[in-house]
């Protein structure tokens, strides 16, 4: 019944409208003239959220309304952010398994043991380019290759 309904004065409605127009101009101007870098999206979203809040509070009269309605839309918003954040948790870090070895742990341990058991010979102790002078090319590149493989395997 009417006595329960809050009548929002025209003045409020018009000032909210003016504020909305102002914020729209603000978002256009900031987007076109100022470079916020990574903050560009947050700034735009902040302005949009302010506008949205104005619409919800005054035009949709949530300020004067039953709290349950506000709760409903808040829960909705929370779950929208859950949807976005949890999905991004995957898409932002997608492929983070690539820096993990795909060989089994026991296999890794076996290889480590084999490496440790191998007595380093003169070939393997050579590291600087100067150490390779005088060695024939094939042997040298084979040694380098082998070293590279040994290095890379665990960090594949």
């Amino acid at each position: 019944m009417a006595h329960g309904h809050h009548i929002i004065p025209k003045k409020t409605l018009f000032s909210v409208f003016a504020a909305l127009i102002g914020l729209t101009l603000l978002t256009v101007i900031t987007a076109l003239t100022i470079d916020f870098g990574v903050l560009e999206i947050p700034v735009a979203l902040a302005i949009a959220s302010t506008k949205a809040l104005l619409v919800v509070i005054f035009f949709m009269a949530l300020k004067y309304d039953n709290r349950v309605n506000a709760l409903a839309i808040t829960v909705g918003l929370v779950f929208v952010s859950v949807f976005i954040i949890f999905t991004m948790l995957d898409t932002v870090f997608r492929g983070d398994l690539d820096n993990v070895s795909n060989i089994t742990i026991s296999q890794q341990e076996r290889e480590d043991e084999q490496l440790r058991a191998r007595e380093p010979d003169a070939d393997q102790l050579r590291v600087a380019p100067a150490d390779f002078v005088g060695v024939d090319d094939d042997e040298a590149s084979a040694a380098v290759d082998e070293a590279a493989t040994a290095d890379e395997a665990p960090a594949q």
């Binding site: 779950f79 859950v82 949890f86 948790l89 995957d90 898409t91 932002v92 870090f93 997608r94 492929g95 983070d96 398994l97 993990v100």
Partner: peptide, 22 residues
């Protein structure tokens, strides 16, 4: 129940971090 859907996707190729969280 809304925070766990990724446990259907453990072997889908989603990121490991989200697998752990889910």
């Amino acid at each position: 129940g809304f925070l766990v859907w990724g446990h259907h996707m453990f072997v889908s190729g989603q990121s490991a971090i989200s697998g752990i969280v889910f």
